[in-house]
Simulated scan of single mutants.
Amino acid sequence: MAHSHSHSSPQPQRPHDSNARRLRLAFVITAGFMVIEVIGGLVSGSLALLADAGHMLTDAAALLFALLAVQFSRRPPNARHTFGWLRLTTLAAFVNAIALVVITILIVWEAFQRFRHPQPVAGMTMMVVAVAGLLANIAAFWILHRGSEEKNLNVRAAALHVLGDLLGSVGAIAAALVILLTNWTPIDPILSVLVSCLVLRSAWRLLKESLNELLEGAPGSLDIPALKRGLRREIPEVRDVHHVHVWLVGEKPIMTLHVQVIPPHDHDGLLARIQHFLEHHYQIAHATIQMEYQPCSVPECHINETAAEHAHHHHH
């Protein structure tokens, strides 16, 4: 996990290119099939197919967002956007998650209408379209899953969508089978609701992750009190760590912190050791460290210390 400041180095370009190519291909497949599924759903009267098409629509949108994000993340940082455009990818994931929730609600609503007034469904048409949709989804998922950066939130979001779609297509096939064999049409709205639940699950996760990043939240896996303790333990010169801020920009953690130290013989050496600790233990390659020789006198430090020592006695 060697991280380096790759702001200017041209090297990380290659995975981007292959990601963009994969996303483009998956987008063409998904968008094309979405149209076929909408037509198939309307012709056969199948809500499960329409649910799956709704699913595919958000898929196509997800892929489009991801593509735009890859394009934007190539833009170099400038004086105005000092982090570049990486946050745009997060915004795309957020918008996309909300779209998923809206579509799910619409489909569930329609399903309840169908329970009350069952509609005829053409099983054979539904079957053909569902099988074709399944094949399209398998192709798209396979393309995305070979994506170089499994860590990329957008490629992952897109792959998640397509996976949900796969399950949606399987559901539509199952519903078509039941209708062909028994002519029991309520299976169609039942399965459309199940597909919607799958969609909702991936949407919720995406919403949580992207919102955390937009609200400058720390990475979920990072335990800041443990980081402070570890720093004091590993580097004897460090007396106190305060004003710690961690946030994510395009999935890269960025950190600022104040470290109160015993005045060192070698200021730069100590700084390098602190940086190495952060990078080695927490994969934080971009940290701004302010070293202080005086005890911290800002009220925030005392609050932090007392809060850390007596979390249960003290309320700020």
Rank of each mutant, 00 (worst) to 15 (best):
A2K: 06
H5F: 03
P12K: 07
Q13H: 09
A20V: 06
R22E: 06
F27M: 07
V28I: 15
I29H: 02
T30G: 13
A31M: 12
V38R: 07
S46E: 13
L49I: 08
L50M: 15
M56Q: 08
T58M: 01
A62C: 12
L63R: 04
L67V: 02
V70R: 07
R74G: 10
P76C: 13
F83M: 11
F94G: 08
N96P: 01
V101I: 11
V102F: 12
L106N: 13
W109F: 13
F115K: 01
V121I: 12
A132I: 05
A136S: 15
A136K: 12
N137K: 02
H145M: 14
E149F: 06
L153Q: 11
A157T: 15
A158R: 01
G164V: 11
G168K: 09
L181Y: 09
I187L: 10
K208M: 05
L211K: 12
A218Q: 09
S221D: 15
I224H: 12
P225I: 03
L227K: 06
L231W: 00
E234T: 07
R239C: 05
H245L: 11
V246H: 00
L248W: 03
E251I: 01
P253T: 06
V261E: 03
I274L: 10
E292P: 03
T306G: 14
A307R: 13
